[in-house]
Write a protein that binds this DNA or RNA. Structure first.
Length: 136
DNA sequence: GCCAACGTTGGC
DNA sequence: GCCAACGTTGGC
């Protein structure tokens, strides 16, 4: 079991839309590092859903419903998607500012490499963030 | 809307 | 294979 974090701009695809859809394929990844992370995801892995640009917070938890497959929005075999489904929303979203202020999260990939749209989260980081969001 | 960070591209 | 130029992302 591994943990991940994906980003979405709420304009483009918000958590609310995700919940309404019940399931979605995570497309639009056009970065090799992010793509490699997508490929490493396994069914059942848990994923933080982060709102970039607006909100700047982790707003919910998703689960990998289907492992990577060819991105249906392109012919290019370089790119893949995974299926995600919503698990639950944070009662209290954990903001980027809070995560930056938390010493236990100083190595968080999201903070170290802000532009990476799909990044790994360690188990310790996962639990820290869960506590910060009152999700324990 | 600006700017910093970073990835990608292309000329040499 | 290096490096400058350029484009994109995302925080502020």
């Amino acid at each position: 079991m591994a943990y991940w974090l994906v980003k979405s701009e709420p304009f483009k695809y918000s958590w609310d839309q995700f919940v309404k859809d019940k399931q979605t394929f995570w497309d639009g990844v056009r970065n090799y590092q992010a793509r490699n992370n997508l490929k490493a995801m396994q069914k059942g892995d848990e994923v933080f859903f982060y709102h970039s640009n607006e909100g700047l917070a982790i707003v919910g938890i998703a689960k990998v419903a289907k492992e990577h497959y060819q991105d249906p929005t392109t012919e290019d075999p370089n790119w893949v998607v995974v299926d995600l489904k919503p698990v639950k929303a944070f009662k209290k979203p954990v903001t980027l500012a809070e995560m930056k202020a938390e010493p236990a999260l100083s190595n968080l990939a999201l903070i170290r490499q802000g532009r990476l749209s799909v990044c790994p989260v360690t188990e310790a980081e996962w639990h820290t963030i869960m506590e910060m969001g009152n999700m324990q």
